[in-house]
Design a protein around this nucleic acid. Sequence first.
DNA 1: ATACAGAGGTGTTCC
DNA 2: TGGAACACCTCTGTA
Length: 209
Amino acid sequence: MPSLIDTYAKIESSISVRLHEFEQLGSGKSFDIWCEMIYCTCTPQTNAKHANAAVEKLKALDLADHGYVEDMATVLRDCGVRFHKNKAKYIDINRTKYKDLGDWIHGFIKQHDVLYTRNWLADHISGWGYKEASHFLRNIGYGEEICILDRHILRCLEEHEVIDSIPKNLNSSYMEIEQKMLEFSRQLGIPNAAMDLLFWYTQKGEIYK
DNA sequence: ATACAGAGGTGTTCC
DNA sequence: TGGAACACCTCTGTA
């Protein structure tokens, strides 16, 4: 089995392209950032490509801006997004409050910092906890100080003995495990923002988001 | 075949 | 006060 460093060397350029795309998205149109919020709301327990397909279909049907909850739920279900009813509700709630988040999130982050912003997002965006708040921030170009601790990453961390075992309840230990992963990335000399894509590549054999 | 775990978690309830 | 337990939902892979 090749080491993480070897694998990273092999796919570094592909990862760099992806990370650059995240930055582009973050500095792009507010509507695109809103669509990324929809994506992150759809993602939990759901195939990432299904979540992405749902976003594209919502856009194609002009539902992302102002669709009824029921219509959005139908699209999510048809695209294979799990918990489609709840997630359609979350999208509706978030839209009424934070559809323009892309217009001010960068100033917000500059004024506070990424960690504070993640807390704020997890508290204020319906359907987001630490994991999805981190996912969103990474996807708009702020992945250097935070980790997306989903079950796959936790499994990788366990395999590489960064953590002894996967905790039953993440809430209490998210920051602690995150620190260990940040330290791990420093030891390897691999940018933290790339670690998530690298781990996913080792499991799935491709780079997605 | 039929069952059953697993899927890029989060919100609510209950003690 | 905080943690388990459960609901949300449906499809796929595996034995």
